[in-house]
Design a binder for these strands. Structure first.
Lengths: 362, 362
DNA sequence: GTGAAAGCGCTAACAC
DNA sequence: GTGTTAGCGCTTTCAC
């Protein structure tokens, strides 16, 4: 037998491939599978124009040498990054910008999970809102934003420019970009009606920014007002607490209730559970008991609300149902398919902080 | 005048550049600044080997046509992605994996801010821990992980392989990778000693996994035990509640205290504030008042702890101080500079849930 | 159904 | 101090 013959079974190149596992390229896979790089690319991207048998061979080769795609090379070439940028409303108090509201964690967690499920990476942006300027520098496939933010015009522009984007917001307000979320007006109405049914007559509201009439804060406020009207109650100006002019500790809010309006017997904290919990505590500090003297209802249904004293009555936004839809909508847009807005079903979760339960409960 | 003459003042190319603003490339900048692409690259990366005047000209040109670097092209060429992957311990209960602990949001927020400050993007990974396998597919510049996780060996491997990595964990336990964090043993010791100083004698502990002797849970447990020893108190087996075998609602924990060990007068919830709050509520439900009957101390100092009833005594991990250090350490490693571990100063924040305050307070 | 070859936008040698 | 050139790893015409 010829000593110079090549031993086909243990090609030294194979060994090298193994050693460099992880930095293998399409070329390596191509060589091993005995096809061209083009075929490798097609096979790995599950192109229909490659024979099943070839596909299998390529996949085997890739697996054997531990090939993993270079995201950036692909992004450069195909203009697809497989990354979604997520934007949360970051409160900016001076330099110390913190995300304190646990709702965002639960949201982020749900989005991350859904994106991962779809094979997408999640980039958490420092920017609270998306706009065209940001888009030019971001280089991601699409965006998810919580709330319309202070510049809904930017969202409209983006959508018109064909940028894949889905916003966690009530879909009924603006139809010119894809929105997924609960009907804030209706849910706020439900929450306040719940208080009314409980016998509360003097109901205050703590809300976020009311400037923008399409903001969650405003919508919830609208629901609050309508509920009062429906019940034939007074919608007194002095009962409206704007969080933007108050501290996050709830002290100012509680003072507004106990001092300026001592007859208040309920508060709808549209600003969210975090604030609601702080308000409850401040009310207690001022000698009011919850729910006996003052009932409190929050918004968001954060997990900790179930463990406060009293347990927090709140409004669930249906993240479990809504977030997968939200993610689906971005993906559809990336694929160039139509992506309609979608209303998500929320519900009032009645717990101790508002006294009785009316069967709407958790 | 020759009608065919070119109007130099409004070069059509300029117009095109403006229209395509955002998709301008180094070539466009180079052309406009009258230099080569190499010079553009150098100028934009602030290379010292380019004259200030040229640099200024390039920068001006870039600004004028709205040039923005293509991250993926750069990543492909320079093997630098400008992205850090962040890993949080995601509890996996079946399919519904959620991140419920607000501490992680506060952590994430701080990291995001620090990374942004350094011009880096934050990728939030679905994976709870980093390892070599993950690294092969991740293609990011570096990693930040919260806690050692279940596989510290993986961290060691990574560090040995030269992968930039910084872990939020006590630095004293393992020195073979970069760790930044508080001294869990000492802080737990402080917290429990605080209870002892308060006159508590029968102190239970609720902890996470105790299997791994380098886990935060174990270290805090060790601090607990040592504090009891120092105080000459019993470290009774029956006072140890392992959260891995209990529900997150705190019911089981509270039952352990009230039923199996009714003489317990304090609980150190090493598992964290989230759990501590749930435990408090469960204790109250079982007829115990906090802190009168049972004092409770948590860990992490989440913001909501200040607003519960009673306000939560806890241990602050010094995120504000520590996280920037953590981020600095990853960056150092990316730059090939040495990155030592660093101990962060935490402190007991004494509030109502443990009764008296001893001046260590917030 | 598969291959050859041309780049995506950038940076890093290497010249000068 | 600046320009020329090659090529990072991939996808995608265009041939066949």
């Amino acid at each position: 037998m010829d000593l110079n013959s090549t031993n086909i079974n243990s090609d030294p190149k194979d060994v090298i491939d193994y050693i460099h596992a992880g930095s293998a390229t399409v070329d390596d896979v191509a060589r091993r599978a005995g096809v061209s790089t083009a075929t490798v690319s097609r096979a790995l991207n599950d192109s229909p124009s490659v024979r099943e048998e070839t596909k299998a061979r390529v996949e085997a080769a890739a697996r054997e040498i531990g090939y993993v795609m270079h995201r950036h090379a692909r992004a450069l070439r195909s203009q697809r990054t497989n990354t979604i940028s997520v934007h949360l409303p970051i409160p900016r108090s001076g330099d110390a910008e913190t995300l304190a509201n646990p709702f965002y964690l639960e949201f982020l967690s749900a989005v991350g999970s859904a994106l991962h499920h779809a094979g997408l990476d999640m980039l958490v942006s420092h920017a609270a809102t998306v706009d065209l300027d940001l888009h030019r520098t971001a280089q991601v496939d699409g965006y998810i934003q919580v709330g319309r933010g202070r510049n809904p015009g930017g969202l409209r522009e983006l959508a018109q420019a064909g940028v894949p984007l889905a916003v966690w917001a009530p879909p009924d307000v603006a139809t010119d970009y894809c929105a997924v979320g609960v009907d804030n007006v209706a849910l706020a109405h439900d929450a306040v009606s719940h208080l009314v049914a409980d016998g509360r007559r003097r109901i205050a509201v703590i809300t976020g920014d009311l400037d923008d009439t399409t903001s969650e804060g405003y919508l919830r406020f609208a629901g609050y007002r309508r509920a009062l009207e429906d019940a034939g109650l007074d919608a007194d100006e002095s009962l409206i607490g704007d969080l933007t002019s108050m501290d996050a500790s709830g002290v100012a809010a509680a003072r507004m209730i106990t001092q300026a309006n001592p007859e208040v017997d309920a508060v709808f904290v549209a600003a969210g559970d975090s604030t609601a919990i702080a308000v409850i505590r401040s009310l207690q500090d001022l000698g009011r008991s919850v729910p006996e003297d003052v009932a409190v209802v929050g918004f968001d249904n954060i997990q900790l609300g179930e463990f406060t004293h009293p347990r927090l009555t709140t409004v669930d936004q249906g993240l479990a149902q809504g977030v997968p839809i939200l993610v689906d909508r971005v993906i559809r847009q990336i694929d160039g398919r139509p992506a309609s807005s979608q209303k998500v079903t929320g519900r009032v979760v009645a717990r101790e902080s508002c006294g009785g339960t009316h069967g709407q409960d958790t």
